Simulated scan of single mutants.
Amino acid sequence: MNIVFIINDPYANNIETLYAELSAEPENIITVVVCDRVGHSFSPAVPALEIAAVLADKGIPHIIYCADFDIEALKPDYIFTSNPYDIYIDDKLSSDKLSAIGRLIHVSYGAALIHWSGDYRVLAENPYLERASMVFTESAQLYRDRINFIPVGYLKLDSYAYYGRQFTRFDRKAIAWKPRWTGADRVNFISYAQSLFDVVKKNNLILNLIAHPLLFVSLSQEEGMEEGINLLNLMKNDECVRFVLGADFLDDVLGSDILVSDISSTMAEFMFTEKPVIFTGGMADLNKVGEAVMSACYKISDGDALKKKIESLLEGKDPLMSNRRGVYNWLFDGHEKVSVATRIKNILKDGLGD
C-alpha cells in the first residue's frame, strides 16, 4: 500500500500505533507530511516545526510541506489527514483536492457525546466528511446513518490498551480537571476552580489541569473575570497544580484517580480506567455514547457539591463503581487481542481490492 499521512496538529497519539503497524510491513510505502495548522481567533495556529518536533520525539520520519511539494506525484492509494476541517489547512491541501488524488481517510480523534444538532449542526454539514472514502470512528453506536463511517475502536488509546504504554504514576492522589471555559461557562469555571483548589490544598492532592492554549486569553476577554485570572496565576505557582499540555497529556489524565469534567470526549476516554468521573456541566443533547458515559458519572451543580463528592470518593464511597465496569469495552469495540491499528490496516488492505 502507498499511504500519505498529512499532519497539521501535534497530537501524534492518533497515528502512532497505526504508523508502526503499517511501516512494519516492508511492502508498504508510508510518507508523513507535516504542515502548518492555520489559526483563527477561536483556535490557535500551530507551526509545522512544532508538530515536526513531536513526531521526531516519537521516532516517526517525516517531511515538512512546502508550496511546491507535489503529493500527486507520490501516487498514494490512501491519504490520511489528522484534521477533518479544511479551514485549518493550506488550501492546496483541502479535501476537494486531496480526494481527487487518492482515497481520503480520517480517524476520529475523540468520541462525540452529543448529537450534531443546534450549534453543532455545522459538524454534520462538513463537506470533508462527504468527500472522505472512510472515516474511522470509535463506536458502532455513532453515525449509523453514514455509510462511509466505519467503527473500529479508540485508536487514541491504542498504545495503552494493546502496546503496553503506561499512565503517569503520581506520588499521591491526583485529580484531572477538564474545564469548559467559553461563553456562559466562564462563570462556572471560577466557582469550580476555587473549590478544586481548596480541596486539593486541604487533602494534599495533585490537580492536573488540562489547560487549553486559549484559556487565559478567553478569560481576559470577558469583563469581570479578574478573579478567575488571579486564581489561575495563583494555581500556576502552586506545587500541587500541574498544567497539562502537549501531545502526551493523556498519560497524566489517565494516571489520575478522579476526572472532573464538563462535556468532553475525555470523559469517554477516562472510562478506560474505570475510575470515577464527576460531571460539572449542564444540559446536553446526548447521543447513545453520551448517555452510556453519563450513566456512569457523578453529576454535581456547584462548587460545594464538588468538594463534598471528591472527599467522599477519597473515603472510598463510590456507589457508581459497578456502573463503570465494562462501559468502555462495550462502547468502543474492545477486542481481547487485535489492536485498533491492526483492524484499520486490515480494512485498508481489503479496500484495495474494491
Rank of each mutant, 00 (worst) to 15 (best):
V4I: 09
I7S: 11
N8L: 01
N13E: 12
E16N: 08
T17L: 02
Y19W: 14
I30D: 01
G39Y: 06
H40M: 12
P47S: 03
A48T: 05
A53D: 10
H62R: 00
I63A: 11
I64V: 10
Y65R: 00
C66N: 14
P76A: 04
P84G: 03
I87D: 04
S94D: 12
K97M: 14
K97W: 07
L104W: 03
L104D: 06
I114D: 09
H115C: 01
R121D: 14
N126Y: 01
L142Q: 06
Y143K: 00
F149E: 05
Y163S: 14
R165S: 08
S191L: 15
Y192E: 15
Q194T: 08
Q194W: 13
L196H: 01
D198F: 08
V200Y: 06
I210C: 10
L215A: 06
S220W: 03
Q221Y: 06
E226G: 09
C240D: 14
V241W: 06
R242N: 08
D248M: 05
L250I: 02
D251L: 02
D252I: 04
I258F: 03
F270A: 02
T273S: 14
E274W: 05
F279E: 11
F279I: 07
D302P: 05
K308C: 11
K309C: 13
G316K: 11
P319C: 03
V338P: 02
A341C: 00
G353A: 11
